[in-house]
Design a protein around this nucleic acid. Sequence first.
RNA 1: GUCCCGUUCGUCUAGUGGUUAGGACUCAGGAUUUUCAUUCCUGCAACAGGGGUUCAACUCCCCUACGGGAUGCCA
Length: 476
Amino acid sequence: MENGIRVRFAPSPTGYLHVGSLRTALYNYLYARKTGGKFILRIEDTDQSRYIEGAVDNLIRTLKRVDLDYDEGPEKAGEFGPYYQSQRTAIYSRYADELIEKGAAYRCFCTAGDLQKMRERQLAENKDTRYDGRCRNLTEEEINKKLANGDPYVIRLQVPTAGEIIFYDLVRDKVTFPWEMVDDQILIKSDGFPTYHLANVVDDHLMQITHVIRGEEWLSSIPKHLFMYEMLGWKPPKMAHLPLILNPDKSKLSKRQGDVAVEDFLNKGFMPETLLNFIALLGWHAKGDRELFSLKELETEFSLKRISKSGAVFDQEKLKWMNGHYLKHLALEKIADRARKYFLEAEYDISDTEKYEKVISFARERVSLLSEIPEQAEMFYREISFNAEDLDMIGQENSQKIFRFWIMELENKDSWNEQEINDLIKKTSAELEIKGKALYFPLRIALFGSGHGPEIWTLYDILGKEEVLKRLKKLV
RNA sequence: GUCCCGUUCGUCUAGUGGUUAGGACUCAGGAUUUUCAUUCCUGCAACAGGGGUUCAACUCCCCUACGGGAUGCCA
């Protein structure tokens, strides 16, 4: 159901995918899926000084890992490419020229040093630090002379100096800015590359973007963007500015205060389902009390109208809880598959698939991260070791009686089912007149090296009769 | 500093003029479980402050406070 809605996720390739960016991507994705529109990925790589090898590949890989599919973008050419801004410089300069012709932009020959000095002076005089517009009034003669001279220059937007601009944001409704406060933004840098502001306006128009959904940090740039749309004679897209995701101290979520890279969360053992579900809730909420949603469910539930206005603290405690939830409720094979790499890292032999899945089914119940699963599984893959206290318990007469009784009984029959093992426990208790903790503790210590852990049957089921017997025999 | 945006339990939030202000995470207690974990139940805990408007404000308006964002030849 093509309805012409087109949204985009336009990250700059910084080398990793920020959690806040993931949410922006998700909301754009959801809005596209919900409305039957298109979701475009565009790479905003116009800052040459920040080029990072492999950053785009990593970005795309991460998007894939969390299952966020785009309809157009790098490696998925549509009719509006190229989708790298660094490959579109000719396009931007054409529109920059058009703005100059229309008197909405001008060449500025001020050097970085000039600007620095200007800023310092403004600061000293306690004035706003803004470009003072000194190059606005250069004569044609002066300009041509500098041009002929090969002086480097930038192109600046010539914004109105008085009045105010009113616009309507889908999240914040009416927003007003006085033009006085808006700077003559640089559109084309002296290296010929555009700044975000120009590139974003040009591309959103050319790529026929209908809705711009992005972080609140862009809100104050809207006047400049809207001015460009107007001067170029274009219809601006609808805007939705998302509340910020915050550190525990309420500042904008940043690297300095912990992990912000989606890759890091994934590698630590958080799962895509968790990340997507949790992050969807940071700034958006369904009508009722429901909080658990799969991606598919979000696609139908999502609505721009229910995006909240205030920032949301990224609470890792709740993230962990939610991951624990998905660990327990997702298909066993899926968890088993994802946990595999952690077992391999721990060098456990998991070639016995049946055993491995039983282990997973036991361990998934008691952890909140994929990476924590192997430590719960140690008793099934490693020889157990005992501390002094354990040894003491093992050496006691009653313990020895229990072990010998079990060895004898176990050897009587080839295989045991759950009922039979439980009956054996009862029988042991009756025959030896040992009960409760005094019975279970020695058994647990002997079989898996701890007073706490799985039920005896669970352990027997996973390890099998031979291994259980072996562990018991070693101790008598 | 200036401009912009925001403000319901510690945190994420529901709420849209009349509610015992609901849910989730965390925390505490209890039940189940021979243990641990799970699960379930119960509890603690919030409308930033002050003015209006109204018969009635968490809900609408204004001010103050606080928080955040922007203020780059970065996005």
